[in-house]
Amino acid sequence: MIWKPNVTVAAIIERAGKYLLVEEDQQEWGIQLNQPAGHLEPNESIIQACVREVLEETAYTFIPHWLVGIYHWHSNKTNTTFIRFAFSGTVTEFDAGRMLDSGILRAAWFDLSEIRDRRDCHRSPLVMQCIDDYLAGKRYSLEIFTHYD
């Protein structure tokens, strides 16, 4: 058997003390809270994947400014290992008519107390860890990424 971790991206987007998160209907586990996040697809860079995922899950255009961290996490629920690249940045245009990805119930702005109060429905422990790292000032230049076609 060949072992392969899942490469994922996530966006930490803060505006006026609130964070843009999505509520997802995870049929097996109910409604869960997550950053706009998803999997790297063929022929896209890690940064492009994050921009695409934010648009698909929130209808906002995302401009990444920094890498917040790279996270290695194994889900015992799904027996899957994830390598997550988390970015911080800003959003610009909002496309109110855009359909959100399947399973996304809504994208909304949450303050820290709301996020902490709903910790039991976070999609993974990375949701809070990424925000905590962002709050701790972790910022790494995007110049670290090189993408070859």
Score class of each variant (00 low, 15 high):
H122N: 06
H65M: 12
C121R: 15
F85E: 07
A10L: 00
R118G: 13
V54H: 12
A136D: 13
M128H: 12
G97V: 03
V7D: 08
K77Q: 09
N76R: 14
L100I: 04
H65R: 13
I47L: 07
H39Q: 14
T81L: 08
I31Q: 11
N76T: 15
W66A: 12
R116S: 15
G30F: 00
P42A: 13
L126E: 11
E93M: 12
L105F: 07
D120Y: 14
L21N: 01
I70P: 03
G17P: 01
T8G: 04
W73Y: 12
E143N: 09
S102M: 01
L105M: 05
A49H: 07
I47T: 12
D111A: 00
I63S: 13
I70L: 11
T58Q: 06
V22M: 06
I144V: 14
H72K: 09
S88K: 01
V54Q: 10
K77D: 07
H39N: 15
G103E: 04
Y140C: 11
I13S: 00
D95F: 14
M128G: 14
H74F: 01
H72L: 10
C50Q: 03
Y134W: 09
Y148T: 15
S113V: 13
I13C: 03
A11N: 00
I144S: 14
L40T: 08
G89M: 06
Q32S: 11
L67D: 10
D133C: 03
I83C: 02
E14S: 12
P5E: 03
A11L: 06
A96Y: 04
E44G: 11
Y19N: 09
A11G: 04
Y19L: 06
A37S: 10
H72G: 14
T8Y: 02
H72W: 06
V54Y: 06
A108T: 12
T8H: 03
I115R: 08
H65Y: 08
Y140F: 13
K138P: 02
I104N: 05
T146K: 12
I46P: 08
T58C: 13
H122F: 02
V9K: 01
Y148W: 15
Q35C: 12
R15N: 05
W29G: 11
S141P: 09
S141N: 08
D120F: 13
F85I: 04
A107G: 09
F62D: 08
D111C: 05
L20D: 01
V54S: 07
N76I: 07
G17N: 00
E24L: 12
R139H: 05
S102L: 01
Y71S: 07
F62H: 08
Y19K: 09
Y19A: 08
S113H: 12
L105T: 04
Q27Y: 01
H39W: 08
I144W: 15
E41F: 10
F82L: 07
E44M: 12
D132V: 10
E53L: 09
N79F: 02
